[in-house]
Every structure is written in structure tokens, then in C-alpha cells.
């Protein structure tokens, strides 16, 4: 074989661009955007639990979130950018992965890796699809059977008291749990913050929050469909 070396990609204009151009950098960007999205879902889950405190409480909370239009849009744009960067980097890396092993194994047996870690692209796409449905359901309201702007509690009950609605939410939250199970652990490695001493603790933190968020989010659809709320 030749010992020639292929040239690196064209000179990179900015440092962020340079980060995007390398696989390690893309993973770092995925970790940073992942942290943003994790913090969002954590706050979202805690906010959701106010459903159990009655219609007035959750409706008031929803109003509170919209008290400042610039802040609302700032948050929305940050989240949209985070989702876009995270998903695009993930999909690009996944496509690169297909090129890295064009001929697959006849027989390949994972030794230690979790199912969650090997299915990040699929849990990620599931969450992406769910986010679109969720916005159409409870923000825009076009797929909600009885949508009324501002009536958050009534809208939630209308959507989740249908078996199909509740199922979609619970399935998506299990997917989110899988994604966080590995993502919350992997992000430390991607940013170079992991080492053998701290790794088991990070693993526990990841599993803990994955379970917490899945249960916390699933509590609302389960409570509605089972008739505890509504």
C-alpha cells in the first residue's frame, strides 16, 4: 500500500467551522446542544407535573411562560438551533458511519454495549418525530381533537384521554429515556470530561435522570388515560 496521505479538508474559516469539520468537534457540539436540550426537558417535566395541582395552576403556569414575547421567542430560537445542530450532526455522523464499514459482519456480537447506546439514531429520530407531533398537538393544535388557545389543561385532557394520544406520548418518552440513558453518559466523554474514576458515577447519573424523566413525563398521559386527572 502507498504511504501517501490525503490532504485535509479546505482551510477552515472559523473555529466553530473547524469544530464542525472534525468528527470529534461534531460530537462536542452534539454534547453541548444535548446539555441545552436536557435542561429544557428537565424543566419541562417539572412544569408538567403541575397538571396534578389542577387546571388553574397549569393554565397559570402556561400564561407565565408567555409573559414576555421576546423571551419566549429567544428560548424557542435557542431550542430550534440546538435541535437543528444536534440532529444534523447526528445524521451526518451516522451517514459517515455507513461509509466507514461498507461491508458488514456476517456475525457481530456486542460484548458490553447497551441497546440504548447502539440505537441512538433511532431513538433520536423517534424524539424528533414526536416533537413535531407534540407541537401540532398542544402548541398549534391542529391534531388535537378540541384545541382552544390558552386552555392548556383542557387541551392536554382532550389529547391524552384518547388511547392513541396517550400511547404516542408514553412510547416517545420511553424513547427519550433510552436516548438520555446513553446520551447523558456519552456527553461527558465527548467533551473530554470523563475519566475512569468519575465514569461509573456519570453512568449512574445518566440512568437516574433517564428513568426520572421517563416516569415524570409518562405520569401525565397515564394519569389522564386512567382517569386520575381530567
Amino acid at each position: 500500500m502507498s504511504t501517501s496521505v490525503s490532504p485535509v479538508s479546505a482551510p477552515r474559516a472559523t473555529r466553530l467551522g473547524a469544530l464542525w469539520n472534525s468528527a470529534v468537534g461534531k460530537k462536542a457540539l452534539m454534547a453541548v446542544t444535548g446539555i441545552v436540550l436536557f435542561l429544557f426537558v428537565l424543566v419541562h417535566m417539572i412544569g408538567n407535573l403541575q397538571v396534578f395541582q389542577g387546571a388553574e395552576k397549569i393554565n397559570h403556569y402556561a400564561e407565565l411562560l408567555r409573559i414576555s414575547l421576546p423571551f419566549l421567542w429567544f428560548t424557542r430560537i435557542v431550542l430550534l438551533v440546538a435541535v437543528f445542530v444536534h440532529a444534523l450532526a447526528g445524521i451526518e455522523l451516522w451517514m459517515e458511519r455507513q461509509r466507514a464499514r461498507p461491508v458488514g459482519y456476517q456475525d457481530y456480537r456486542p460484548v458490553v454495549s447497551s441497546t440504548a447506546s447502539r440505537t441512538m439514531i433511532w431513538s433520536g429520530l423517534l424524539i424528533l418525530g414526536f416533537v413535531v407531533y407534540h407541537l401540532l398537538d398542544l402548541t398549534i393544535g391542529v391534531v388535537n381533537p378540541r384545541f382552544e388557545h390558552g386552555q392548556v389543561f383542557a387541551n392536554i385532557v382532550a389529547s391524552l384521554s384518547r388511547a392513541v394520544g396517550a400511547t404516542i406520548y408514553v412510547v416517545a418518552m420511553v424513547g427519550l429515556g433510552f436516548h438520555l440513558w446513553h446520551g447523558l453518559y456519552s456527553m461527558f466523554q465527548s467533551l473530554g470530561l470523563s475519566n475512569r474514576g468519575i465514569s461509573p458515577t456519570i453512568q449512574k447519573f445518566a440512568i437516574g435522570f433517564a428513568v426520572l424523566l421517563t416516569l415524570g413525563f409518562s405520569a401525565v398521559p397515564l394519569a389522564v388515560i386512567l382517569g386520575f386527572v381530567g
Partner: peptide, 26 residues
């Protein structure tokens, strides 16, 4: 390809190289 921290490499490595070297590289 790129690293997704699944840990298979560390498990099969005959020299016992730890996953933390990837963290250091990153």
C-alpha cells in the same frame, strides 16, 4: 468513523486500554 462511547473497543482490547484515553483526546 467517529466515537459514540459504546465501549466495545475497551472490552475487546487485548492491551486493556481504557476508554478515558478517548476522553483525553477529545
Amino acid at each position: 468513523g467517529h466515537c459514540t462511547t459504546i465501549g466495545e473497543c475497551e472490552a475487546v482490547c487485548p492491551a486493556g486500554i481504557k476508554l478515558e484515553v478517548i476522553s483525553m483526546m477529545n
